[in-house]
Design a protein around this nucleic acid. Structure first.
Length: 644
RNA sequence: GCUGCUGUAGCUCAGUCGGUAGAGCAACUGAUUCGUAAUCAGUAGGUCGCCAGUUCGAUUCCGGCCAGCAGCACCA
């Protein structure tokens, strides 16, 4: 006689065991139709699940996040169903739900976009047939036997990994049957708003030593509008692609002779220099000194640091005539340590915060390269903080506070923190790792910061914090990092003289706030869709004349703006004003300053803003005095935001 | 690195079922001097990513390489 408690607190009792679907029907016909699954005492179950005892029950529909996940999961099965019908020789493997969609991996011949279209069409047909999706429970051995018998060896392998004697669930829709934990939608007719996105290779069990499978990605939603909105978001993201913007705005380029290396054009380099200048100022204020160390150093140094052992294959090396093997530095830390070793350091020198805008070189696998976001030669806003064990936690807190404040100034309000702990491949004792991991987690706890743990993901010499920021369209980017390290100090045998005149080992913090300057510049471009706020815009205003008669006045205006410290171009070409406005607007210049006879006579300027709108919603802000314009721009630049 | 796809003028792209290529924009020249997102006309511009092979003939077909794109793997 089950008594069921619904989410609103009301209770319903039934004379006999009931299914979730029957409960939904008892509540109302609308709910019966939209029910996708049930949440029974917190556990997701199919609508066909029979409830025998008292429980808390919620009917899951497409309005719930879980409902959408079930739709995605079931759509993955529908994909496998359709593909098996079209290609019976294909073998199925796994098909999980991911952000915004799902994928399914198959062992089959390489799929083409035409295949994808055909599969999608078949999925639509199968959905329309509204096959019931039914759950069956088999013994593990029976399931292994079955999948082997139909030639599904990947599936059989997966089930064999389940402990013997356990039962497994299978789901059947039409002629298709698949191993799955479930739950699934009650019938394929619930799957309506989906689209296959792309196909690509993926390794079996995610291991590059294994064979490559065909992975089909898809997206699925509860409503057509949501699917449309998602596709629209992807289009927007494409427009923000920093590689495209870099081309359009003339910021940088890449070419075949230098894979993974940036050719910075003047305007791009302006941004790069501004980022360094900003960081330099912030670091100086935070008590750092800046240094510079060699780019090419003897292999012996990298053997001491452990990089040679761990990353030799990813290092650029060079052999000179005298047979010495040098490496282009893949990290700045050994150089920093070498500087620390110069002279005798006292506890009074600590903490010693040593910053370096060092360019590092890493031979990244060719497939990893991606615009500015993943390059082989990049500049870190690196720093090494040498301190005592007692100072380490406070120094960590200082770094965290500095990072968060800087991200905020760049317009990133949402930042997530990841704590990565000791990896399998590491140097140093467990006792040391205990101390280091505690320093990071204590620092965060003391600051009341939330963070996620990633066991085994730390660097080989120490655990690390990683700072992940969320951009304007909700994408996450990993940027800053903070690592604590007692291992390199030991390997390089560095020490300081303590107050009691004994020699002690300092702790080393490695930190980078932007991470890679190149990457951060790329992220900024995507975040702002190329429309950099005034303080970062390579060209902040363009002065343009309407006709030749005002050329001299336009030059005077440009000169005065430059004297106020603004970066200003002057366009005196004999083109129509519409043409000039279009061109400079496409270049996303924040301000266009138009001067014609009226302005020249009155000594004024007409201002058009990229971001701001007047009361009528027009970007044309009308006439103002030059002093007013300078004040406006100076204020906006100091505020670091975008104009409104 | 792996799988698949792509590489034609400065940019965006069309084209050649094998007979050495075309548009728009940009550039250059001339005319136009114009009030808030493209004025008109003309000129010039390419060893069709690179190297081999098949062929009377390859940008097109085959193979190798390089680079890029998507995903996977990697990311000190």
């Amino acid at each position: 006689m089950p008594v069921l408690t619904l989410p609103d607190g009301s209770q319903r009792s039934f004379a006999q065991p009931v299914t979730v679907a029957e409960v939904a029907a008892a509540i109302g016909p609308g709910l019966a139709k939209s029910a996708l699954a049930g949440r029974l005492d917190g556990r997701l179950v199919d609508t066909s699940h029979r409830i025998e005892a008292d429980a808390r029950l919620a009917i899951v529909t497409a309005k719930d996040a879980e409902g959408v996940e079930i739709i995605r999961h079931s759509t993955a099965h529908l994909l496998a169903h359709a593909l098996k019908e079209l290609m019976p020789e294909a073998q199925v493997t796994i098909g999980p739900v991911i952000d915004n969609g799902f994928y399914y991996d198959f062992a089959c011949r390489p799929l083409t976009p035409e295949d994808l279209a055909a599969i999608e069409k078949r999925m639509g047909e199968l959905a329309k047939k509204d096959f019931p999706v039914t759950r069956e429970v088999w013994s593990r051995d029976q399931a292994v036997e079955f999948f082997k018998s139909i030639g599904e060896r990947y599936k059989a392998e997966l089930i064999e990994a389940i402990p013997a004697g356990e039962e497994v669930s299978l789901y059947r829709e039409g002629d298709f049957i698949d191993l799955c934990r479930g739950p699934h939608v009650p019938s394929t007719g619930k799957l309506r708003h989906f689209k296959l996105m792309k196909v690509a290779g993926a390794y079996w069990r995610g291991d590059s030593r294994n064979e490559m499978l065909q992975r089909v990605y898809g997206t699925a939603w509860a409503k057509q509008e949501e699917l449309d909105a998602y596709l629209h978001m992807l289009e927007e993201a494409e427009k923000r692609d920093h590689r495209k913007l870099g081309q359009q705005l003339g910021l940088f380029h890449f070419q075949e002779e230098a894979p993974g290396a940036v050719f910075w054009h003047p305007h791009g380099w302006r941004l790069f220099l501004d980022l360094i200048g900003y960081m330099r100022q912030r670091q100086e204020a935070a008590g750092y000194v800046e240094v510079n160390t060699p780019d090419v150093m003897d292999r012996a140094l990298w053997e001491i640091s452990g990089h040679w052992h761990n990353y030799r294959d990813h290092m650029f090396t060079t052999q000179t005539e005298d047979e010495r093997v040098f490496a282009l530095k893949p990290m700045n830390c050994p150089g920093g340590v070498a500087l620390f070793k110069q002279g005798v350091k006292s506890y009074r020198d600590l903490p010693l915060r040593m910053a370096e805008f060092g360019k590092v070189h890493r031979y990244e696998p060719s497939g990893a390269l991606h615009g500015l976001l993943r390059v082989r030669h990049f500049t870190q806003d690196d720093a090494h903080i040498f301190c005592t064990e007692e100072q380490m936690e406070e120094e960590c807190r200082n770094v965290v506070a500095l990072i968060l404040d800087i991200y905020r100034e760049f317009g990133f309000a949402q930042v997530r923190i990841k704590l990565s702990t000791r990896p399998e491949k590491r140097i140093g004792s467990d006792a040391t790792w205990d101390k280091l991991e505690a320093a990071l987690s204590n620092a965060l706890d003391r600051m009341g910061m939330a963070y996620d743990r990633f066991p085994g993901e730390g660097a080989f010499y120490g655990p690390k914090l990683e700072f992940v920021l969320r951009d304007a369209i909700g994408r996450d980017w990993q940027c800053g990092t903070l690592q604590v390290d007692m291992n390199l100090p030991e390997r390089f045998d560095i020490h300081y003289v303590a107050a009691d005149n004994t020699h002690r080992r300092p702790v080393m913090l490695h930190r980078a706030l932007f991470g890679s300057l190149e990457r951060f510049a790329g992220i900024l471009l995507e975040h702002y869709a190329g429309a950099l706020p005034l303080w970062l815009a390579p060209v902040q205003a363009v002065v343009m004349n309407i006709s030749a008669a005002q050329a001299d006045y336009a030059e005077t205006v440009a000169k005065k703006l430059r004297e106020a410290g603004l970066r200003v171009d002057c366009d005196l070409r004999g083109e129509k004003i519409n043409y000039k406005i279009r061109e400079h607007s496409l270049l996303k210049r924040p301000y266009l300053v138009v001067v014609g006879d009226q302005e020249k006579a009155a000594g004024w300027v007409a201002v058009r803003s990229r971001d701001a709108r007047d009361a009528r919603g027009s970007p044309d802000l009308g006439q103002m005095s030059l002093a007013e314009l300078i004040e406006r721009l100076t204020l906006e630049r100091a505020g670091k935001g975008v104009a409104v």
